[in-house]
Nucleic acid binder design. Structure first.
Length: 853
RNA sequence: GCUCGGGUGGUGGAAUGGUAGACACGAGAGACUUAAAAUCUCUUAUCCAUUAAGGGUGUGCGGGUUCGAGUCCCGCCUCGAGCACCA
């Protein structure tokens, strides 16, 4: 050590004062060895005394941070002392800090969950110490296909598997050191929870936002259930990657499209990650255009017309043909006038049964068939044009009819070329004139479709509706005042009634044969005891709906439940909700951009319109965390590159894993997990441990430089830049070790507090070891003095023509005149100025001076 | 095809238009040690020079704006993510 120190002095001299100031020498220090001897005397002493020093040091330092015992003790203590339980009724400064709850569809948490949870928790701890009553709940999204498929894979009944997963996940979640409000945890498969999921369903139903439709839906042959559009990724099932096919089924839909304009508009006022907002905008897909009526010539007396939707009314003169989607309802009527009806019907049949993947394939050639005997008349020029059915037109968008303009549209051109249609090269005309001329209606279209919420599966909340044959006719025939006894949903879906609130939940029975058999019905359809019900209206025998709800309905409102979870009577208590919601900070994966986040917004908007809540956006601030990958690839079992957080917690402790993950890079970027990253953090925390247990602290003030550290760590935490916060803290500890005599108790406490959100265990232990009272996590966040920031020297950079030529120390706040004087006094500067005149001087206060010659 | 992000040492990554590479890993040299580990010290973008002091180049490529550009503008290349026959 002695020799090393003298070496340091030599090289510091040779490499220049600036550099040595920048990179302070590091020095081990022990409590037992007087620090003066260790630091100042050692270099002058002989080899013999260095040995003595070393021996003493070895005894006290380096000590390894004994995380095992400490983490165990504090995690129990925190729960006992309710350190992280805010007073939900009386809290003065509520801050709702939420992360997306996990679905327990695996053995346990993976490191990606840990990354997200830690990222949120650090923010919550920071806010708690900054004076907020932070509420950070946790639960499990355990209903649904993910969990059910996993249970099937394991050959365990999902109800049993849920209990196993619950235990595993909660045990793990207790180890990662998060400040969860455990008393408010919830599980979506718990009847006390899904009772209210069903209540939400009935609320939407009665408000006229749910309807039943026989429609071609996405069908996953492997999961044997329908999928929402959002769950189909490039023609494949989001869960199992099978090719999705189409199937005609009777389904329940939520009218999310009614809220499309609001869902879009509100995005502007949300403080969300920009990429998520963009993804939602794209998904909602607003486009403004014109609807134009074309009359049809069927060769009969019958007067028919259809409407097309176009964003390019200015191309109307170039319309060469018209195309209709095979699924179009209007097309069915038209068939009566078609001369080649059989061929057309054959084409429609084939188109409908084409697998999705085939239909959307890039290189697919366009197909279609002409409707013989039917002509459309272009309203702009009276020209008769042929009408085709072709599957490149989508039925769910616009009117299902499209005007073919091959001169201005690539797809239309490809179609025209294939079927040898004349390509009219008519010039563009003025847009507004065109609209007027053809009497077009300006309309806004959205690509968003209604949300299909039925699932033909077992493991979900049963849809709380009952169908009564006896009432169906009555409802249909009801007129005038009679209609008032029915809700909007009941009128729209004659015979269907929502289960009354007092009869909720509709409990999911234990069914041995829970596997879907694939006929398009839920396993519940085979359980007579379940589906036999009394009509909520007339009391006669009726039949219960046997499909269950999409999991995304479970998670579309859970944030409302957390603060009110102890209330068994209402889904969410109005006072509590007004106090805690909307969520102040929400963190989760970007993969939920158009699923969970959109559905939650929709449900919240509906609840607002039903006057059940007083806000229309659930998450004021949302940040998407990045993805943790391994060796450049997504982690997955099949690739064998899954990182198990437990192993790291066992070996190094939760604090080390937390900080390793956060040090990889900005939270919103994610990163590649490497074992190498652990080493630096282990070293750092050992240094922190020895600092806390072995240093002597003076009664002085905060060190000058600590003010800057406090400022920067505070700003970094606020902006989720945990990686740079950690680097600031590393610089701080290096500074402490460099001048161990100059560390005050104030320095120490401020440092521990700044580190506390990132490494809650070690800081809590040291906080009590050094004799502080109470939990550090309830202590107040350190403050810095703005003046102190200014009372420092800085390196004034001297540039000549924009090139750095020299650096000198100067006082902060120095004036331009003084700075110039100092610069010109430097010999090195003058070397460059010789024989030149200074034309201009640029001065950046506390930074640099640039001389232009 | 459209939209949104990226491209900086051997690696992960830092840089309100103002010293590019903070912090960390790795590597090299040294101290300590019987030895190893741990720990500590120094070096570490690159090229030229080296006795010393220095100097040149450098943030995907090509231009531009500016006293000054990783950062702003224009045109490309490239990687990633999302959407995708949306008329």
């Amino acid at each position: 050590m002695k020799k090393a120190s003298s070496q340091k002095t030599v090289s510091a001299k040779s490499s220049g004062a600036v550099k040595s100031a920048k990179k302070p020498a590091k020095m081990a220090v022990s409590k037992k060895e007087p620090k003066k001897a260790a630091v100042k005397a050692a270099p002058k002493k002989s080899l013999k005394s260095a040995k003595v020093v070393k021996k003493a040091v070895k005894k006290a330092y380096p000590k390894e941070y004994p995380f095992k015992e400490i983490e165990k003790r504090w995690s129990t203590n925190w729960i006992e002392k309710k350190v992280y339980e805010p007073d939900l009724k009386k809290a003065k400064n509520p801050f709702y800090n939420l992360m997306m709850f996990p679905y327990p569809s695996a053995e346990g948490l993976h490191v990606g969950n840990m990354y997200a949870f830690t990222g949120t928790d650090i923010y919550g701890r920071f806010k708690r110490m900054s004076g907020f009553d932070v509420f950070e709940p946790i639960g499990l999204d355990g209903f649904g296909i993910h969990s059910e498929n996993y249970a099937m894979k394991k050959g365990v009944h999902p109800m049993k598997q849920a209990k196993v997963a619950e235990k595993n996940f909660y045990n793990q979640l207790k180890m990662i050191g998060n400040g969860f409000a455990w008393e408010e945890r919830l599980e979506t498969y718990n009847p006390e929870y899904y009772k209210f999921t069903q209540w939400i369903f009935t609320s939407l139903f009665n408000a006229g936002l749910a309807y039943r439709k026989n429609a071609p839906v996405n069908w996953c042959p492997s999961c044997k259930t329908v999928l929402s559009d959002e769950q189909v990724i490039a023609g494949r099932c989001e869960r199992c990657d099978s090719e999705v096919s189409k199937k005609e089924l009777n389904q329940w839909f939520f009218r999310i499209t009614k809220y499309a304009p609001k869902l879009l508009k509100n995005l502007d006022k949300l403080d969300w990650s920009e990429k998520v907002k963009t993804a939602q905008r794209n998904w909602i897909g607003e486009s403004k255009g014109t609807q134009i009526k074309f009359s049809l010539d069927t060769g009969t007396e019958k007067e028919l017309s259809v409407e097309v939707f176009t964003t390019r009314p200015d191309t109307i003169m170039g319309v060469s043909f018209m195309v209709v989607a095979p699924e179009s309802e209007t097309l069915k009527e038209l068939l009566n006038y078609v001369q080649n009806r059989e061929d057309v019907e054959q084409y429609i049949f084939e188109a409908k049964n084409k697998p999705e993947v085939e239909r959307i394939a890039d290189d697919k050639e366009k197909t279609g068939i002409v409707l013989k005997g039917v002509k459309a008349i272009n309203p702009a020029n009276g020209m008769p044009i042929p009408l085709y059915v072709a599957d490149y037109v989508l039925s769910g968008y616009g009117t299902g009819f499209v005007m073919g303009v091959p001169a201005y549209d690539e797809r239309d051109l490809a179609f025209a070329e294939k079927y040898d249609l004349p390509i009219l090269n008519a010039p563009l005309i003025d847009r507004d004139k065109a609209i007027k001329q053809v009497n077009g209606k300006e309309v806004t279209q959205y690509r968003l479709r209604d949300w299909c919420v039925s699932r033909q599966r077992y493991w979900g909340a049963p849809i709380p509706l009952v169908y009564c044959e006896h009432c169906a006719e009555k409802v249909k025939k009801a007129k005038g005042a009679e209609r008032k006894q029915y809700s909007a949903g009941e009128l729209e879906n004659p015979g269907w009634f929502a289960v009354k609130e007092k009869d909720l939940p509709v409990e999911l029975p234990f069914v041995k044969e829970f596997r879907p058999e694939g006929a398009g019905t839920s396993p519940l359809a085979a359980v007579k005891k379940f589906y036999t019900a009394k009509c909520p209206k007339c009391g006669k025998e009726a039949r219960r709906e046997t499909d269950v709800c999409d999991t995304f309905l479970d998670s579309s409102w859970y944030f409302l439940r957390y603060p009110s979870v102890k209330s068994k009577k209402v889904a969410f208590d109005s006072k509590t909700t007004a106090k805690w919601l909307p969520v102040n900070m929400y963190l989760g994966g970007a993969e939920h951009s158009v699923l969970h986040l959109l559905y939650s917004r929709f449900v919240t908007m509906v609840l607002k319109d039903l006057k059940l809540v007083n806000f229309d956006e659930p998450f004021t601030k949302f940040r998407a965390h990045g993805l943790v990958i391994k060796d450049g690839k997504k982690m997955s079992k099949s690739k064998g590159n899954v990182v198990n957080p437990d192993d790291y917690i066992k070996q190094f402790g939760a604090d080390v894993l937390r900080m390793t993950l956060m040090f990889m890079g900005p939270l919103e970027d994610g990163g590649d997990f490497r074992d190498a990253g652990v080493v630096g953090i282990v070293r750092f925390l050992n240094r922190v441990w020895n600092f806390g247990t072995s240093f002597n602290f003076s009664n002085g003030e905060l060190s000058q430089w600590m003010h800057k550290t406090i400022k920067e760590v505070t700003e970094d935490l606020e902006n989720l830049k945990y990686n740079t916060a950690i680097s600031e803290l590393m610089v701080a500890i290096n500074n402490f070790y460099d001048k161990p005599d100059e560390v005050s108790k104030k320095d120490r406490d401020a440092f521990l507090k700044l580190l506390a959100p990132l490494a809650p265990f070690i800081t809590e232990e040291l906080w009590s070891v050094v004799g502080n009272k109470g939990s550090i996590h309830r202590a107040s966040w350190p403050e810095y003095d703005k003046k102190a920031l200014k009372e420092e020297n800085f390196d004034l950079v001297i540039q000549i023509n924009g090139k750095v030529r020299h650096t000198i120390r100067a006082k902060r706040g120095i004036s331009e005149e003084k700075a110039l004087k100092l610069a010109l006094a430097e010999e090195k500067v003058n070397q460059f100025l010789e024989g030149e005149t200074i034309k201009k001087v640029f001065f950046v206060p506390d930074r640099l001076i640039n001389l232009v010659i």
